[in-house]
Design a binder for these strands. Structure first.
Lengths: 204, 204
DNA sequence: ACCCGACTTTGCGTGCCGCGCACTATGTGC
DNA sequence: GCACATAGTGCGCGGCACGCAAAGTCGGGT
């Protein structure tokens, strides 16, 4: 993003990280959802042009490396919502932010399929999606003027949004589906995001 | 549950499974969220009165063993919703079912804290909660007469409910909180469960 | 009451992995 | 150009998941 803001050293570090993560995902996709056990750490490291020891200076498991991209994306969710105009009603802002974040660029279907339909990756994939919740809850709280310490609304809504994104992803991956991801996302999100927090959200 | 319906052999198997799972959780709690690495497979097996090799005939990781109880509970979510009277509106039925499932008996705070606030357990814990979604979505689809193949509403709602339960759990665990889990659950769920699917849920 | 067959538990061996430690290489700021 | 901070690497250890085959255990049929 803002490479200039980073130390040259930090930029190299970031580059290695991405090289490893990218290599891991690529190799995983090559083996498919049922051959993940065949992706050896040594292969990932070699493909990334790095020693195996260095690989796990960055990631402490194959799963983490493979899902790293997804996790990074989730971390940006809060920022995405904050960048929406303040006047926009909550549900519109959330939907627009999520669609912007998840369809620009159009996600890699093979990658998403890999991380969402490989049992050994399931836990890490869920962690990746869940990472969006914290920042999202913060942003929602700011936008609705609620106190995240007392009101459950921001956190619950954030969790619901993350869940909707997951479900939309699953639906997008079903064979023969021709809808765009954006369309599915919009449909999924409108099932859970209200226009405003209910008046009784902060009741005792 | 219905022990009589099971072969004696199956009952023993179930008993060993529970012994291992229970021992694993107990040892994990003893070490606390930051000492999980000290819980060796050998210890779990010994505490359960079983050989290490047998332990991983049942579970393929410590995490899985520790969270097994939570996973089992999640599996019952669909059944819990189905057992509500058909006349009850969706949101009431869901809230009642979830509260019944998660507060009878009152959950073990130490256990929940362990599985929800230990980073190494996070993935498995999320998997455990997510297991409620499939059955829940089925039950919601049945109750609302929607087709889970085309409509996103059942799956999205199920995911939102699971998310709300997680958030409620987190909130219940914050130090100094005196509310009952049932109260928090009710508040969290009412943020996401509508009385009925929106009319446009099955559009397109 | 007994035995045969099915199932469970266990011991052993193997390959892989995560990580601590110490050393080297690289490039950064003075 | 030099000294220092930081990233990359080689080595070794402890632990774990799991395949395989032997031993133990239990249940049902006669």
């Amino acid at each position: 993003m803002n490479d200039d803001a980073m130390d040259l050293r930090a930029r190299n570090k970031q580059a290695t990280r991405e090289a490893i993560s990218h290599a891991a995902l690529r190799l995983a996709i090559e083996q498919g959802p049922h051959g993940l056990a065949l992706v050896r750490v040594h292969d990932i490291a070699t493909a990334a042009g790095v020693s195996p020891r260095t690989y796990n200076n960055y990631f402490s498991s194959r799963e983490e490396a493979i899902c790293s991209f997804q996790a990074d994306q989730s971390r940006r969710a809060g920022e995405a919502l904050r960048s929406r105009p303040a006047a926009e009603p909550l549900h519109q802002a959330v939907i627009a932010a999520v669609i912007e974040l998840y369809t620009n660029p159009e996600p890699d279907k093979a990658g998403l399929r890999m991380i969402m339909s490989t049992p050994e990756l399931e836990g890490e994939a869920l962690k990746a999606f869940t990472m969006a919740e914290g920042p999202l809850a913060e942003a929602i709280a700011t936008r609705t003027g609620t106190d995240p310490g007392r009101d459950l609304f921001p956190a619950v809504t954030a969790a619901a949004v993350a869940g909707a994104i997951r479900v939309a992803g699953r639906h997008w991956l079903v064979p023969g589906n021709t809808e765009s991801f954006a369309t599915i996302l919009r449909r999924a999100l409108s099932c859970v995001v209200p226009a405003a927090p209910p008046d009784d959200a902060q009741d005792r």
